[in-house]
Write a protein that binds this DNA or RNA. Structure first.
Lengths: 212, 212
DNA sequence: GTCTATAACAAGATAGAC
DNA sequence: GTCTATCTTGTTATAGAC
């Protein structure tokens, strides 16, 4: 498979080209399914470069996550703070603060849509190391949002609320990774398709969360 | 890893032992991550037995799906027919007809919980061959349910309805495969945990589907 | 920092004896 | 149907020249 044309330019460092190619190939073939040979060939760098820059395949995988998750989490928290700042945020606004940054990431022209699929694979992996890594990154963000939702939905017990938020993250992961059977119509751009998915998701999730 | 004790018994045929071990290992390490050497060792059969009985690893993967999906689909359609038989089914009944058989499968003592994780991995794979195989199996079932939901939710357009059903299957897949961050409490059995997940899911999905 | 070359090993598949 | 032995290829990782 040829690498994405955007990565060919020489002004990307070896490290960045490896990360971009790894993200793309992990999305398409999984962590075990994509070999370092494929990655380095796609990145147009030497096979030995991965071990020089990252030490091992496992470390490379973690770097693929860190590069995106730090920013995603920061954006979510910023959006939540902004929603809380102007008076009382409503449920749709808090949901949007959680969902929209993920949508925007998935629309990022530089590999964002590949990354959300990598993220979905990480959930499927059930790998202890990866799960710890993700809970370290997502854990406190989920807690902040849980607090915000708890204020807006006082009729729900803590247990009930966590169940529902779990369902929302599941549906979000699934929708962003484009697992569904809904085929994008030929007249609709990738961008529009994902934006519609986010709108539907927010409406659906708001109703689900408000259920008695 | 030792194979599940239930599979050791000699009254399981070689073929059945391979399928059981493959299901377990595919759930834990993925299709590329689980080797035929691991599978045959866990099944206590010779390495060459896979190629003798299935021809190739790809064929083995498809058989792992077929074994479960035929029954799952049949049960869903039967539950739907039963719900429609006694008068007018309500939304929760139709949702239950879709969700409960998946729950029951995930509770099957003989590898059901492994299989639902394999199914979740299949979605993440995005593999053309696998997707075709799954749409062949799930396609007409989804259509039957879509018809039932359309009758109960006449205010939704066809497009809108399909989006929402897609979200429901996503949340179901995610919940059954136990991707979530909700940790099962030590006092709660695996069975109870999953039953609660199904209850929460039905309530949430009903509200989401009823949203204007 | 980047290359070639290669070590050390694991993969899927098969041939052929039993 | 089941075994051992082996072929061919691909895997991660590293040593050492430039």
């Amino acid at each position: 498979m040829p690498l994405p044309a955007r990565m060919l330019a020489q002004h990307f460092s070896t490290k960045e080209r490896i990360l971009g190619a790894a993200e793309d190939l992990f999305a398409r073939h999984g962590f075990a399914g994509a070999s370092l040979r494929q990655v380095t060939a796609a990145a147009n760098v030497n096979l030995a470069a991965v071990n020089y820059h990252f030490g091992s395949k496992e470390n490379l995988i973690e770097e693929v996550f860190r590069r995106r998750l730090d920013e995603l989490n920061a954006r979510r928290l910023a959006a939540l703070a902004a929603a809380n700042a102007d008076g009382q945020a409503d449920l749709e606004q808090v949901l949007a603060a959680f969902i929209r940054p993920a949508l925007e990431l998935s629309l990022d022209k530089n590999g964002g849509s590949a990354f959300v699929r990598v993220l979905a694979r990480a959930y499927a992996e059930h790998n202890a190391r990866l799960r710890r890594f993700l809970s370290d990154n997502y854990g406190h963000v989920l807690k902040e949002f849980a607090n915000a939702f708890a204020r807006l939905l006082p009729h729900l017990g803590k247990e009930e609320l966590y169940w529902r938020l779990d369902i929302v993250s599941g549906a979000l992961t699934y929708a962003m990774a484009d697992f569904g059977v809904i085929k994008r119509k030929s007249g609709v751009s990738e961008q529009t398709h994902r934006e519609r998915a986010a709108e539907h998701l927010i409406r659906f999730a708001a109703a689900g969360l408000r259920a008695p």
